[in-house]
């Protein structure tokens, strides 16, 4: 028998971490190819609202997940088109993607604010009163397990497959990759859309499980934390997962602090992930001589001068 408060804290940590991790993992893949996409917040929002509307209208959770993932991926292709095909500034394009995503999803979701879902993602194993750590893990829903699967798969694909090696090569050195005949535009386009799909899955998790309703601005800056997580994790899937657990823990801890007898403001706890990320970023830059693990070509558009 474990302390009931601890059970609640662990459960909330895992849920918050899942949400952050899946979006961060998608951004990691995008950035590995050399494309920086600051539109994570907007993509999560699009995934969240479209998944929610699909669930309301069809009642099918499977269909809702598919719709949420697909629409966020299509939405990310705007960024891919502007930065990969048209070679425009990635910072600007990503930022507008966030602004457009947030306003567009508010517009689409306006009629559905406050509606209640009849269906909700259920836990894989139905446990009425979880009272051990194992129970907590078993009572998570399908997207939690999907997240673990994606983590292993991403690590494997990046390190052990030709596609992954090529992707990393492009992110590290555009010119060499080009002379080796790698298809830069195609790979970067795919990586950006995959990043969008992951953000969409994270969004679906938000509206179908985490807080099962839709309201404006409910992503609440999680997309930006996901971006920070990629840096925190040094562009490595497993370290990013560890970071997600840490950030998820802090998010879960905030509102619970007082029950543990601490007199710390929950508002201050809420900003600690951002402070930690800045510190980690600074420390990594100093002690690893600038090698934070970032792909070298991130943010640089590729243009082959052939007149």
């Amino acid at each position: 028998m474990v302390d009931i408060q601890f059970i609640g804290l662990l459960n909330a940590t895992l849920q918050a971490a899942t949400l952050l991790f899946i979006a961060a993992l998608g951004e990691l893949i995008t950035e590995k190819s050399g494309i920086l996409n600051l539109g994570v917040e907007g993509m999560i929002s699009i995934g969240a609202v479209s998944g929610f509307i699909a669930a309301i209208n069809t009642g099918s959770l499977f269909f809702a997940i598919i719709i949420g993932v697909l629409s966020a991926s299509v939405f990310a292709s705007i960024h891919a088109f502007v930065t990969v095909v048209l070679k425009q500034d990635q910072t600007v394009s990503g930022l507008i993607l966030t602004i457009l995503g947030l306003s567009l999803s508010s517009l689409i979701g306006k009629k559905h604010v406050g509606k209640k879902l009849d269906v909700k993602l259920e836990s894989v194993v139905n446990i009425a009163e979880p009272d051990s750590i194992l129970d907590i893990f078993l009572s998570q829903n399908i997207i939690f397990y999907l997240g673990i699967l994606l983590m292993v798969a991403t690590a494997y694909v990046l390190k052990r497959t030709m596609f992954g090696r090529r992707l990393e090569a492009i992110g590290e050195d555009l010119k060499s990759s080009d002379s080796m005949g790698l298809k830069i535009a195609k790979t970067q386009f795919i990586a950006t859309c995959v990043g969008g799909a992951f953000a969409g899955l994270s969004g679906v998790y938000l509206t179908l499980s985490y807080v099962p309703y839709w309201t404006d601005g409910m992503t609440a800056g999680r997309g930006w934390i996901a971006l920070a997580l990629v840096i925190f994790g040094g562009w490595k899937p497993y370290r990013t997962a560890f970071g997600a657990l840490l950030f998820g823990f802090l998010e879960a801890l905030g509102p619970r602090l007082q029950t543990y007898g601490f007199e710390m403001s929950p508002y201050i706890v809420k900003i600690t992930p951002y402070i930690i990320t800045i510190l980690v970023l600074i420390l990594l830059t100093i002690f690893k001589n600038g090698d934070t693990g970032a792909p070298r070509n991130i943010g640089i558009p590729f243009f082959r001068e052939n007149r």
Binding site: T91, I271, I278, L281, G290
Partner: peptide, 23 residues
Amino acid sequence: LFGVNEIITTLLTNYIVFGLTIY
């Protein structure tokens, strides 16, 4: 001093200052 990416750090300060305001 160290060449830390300013896009990320300026972005993160937004949330820190907003949190401070709410606090």
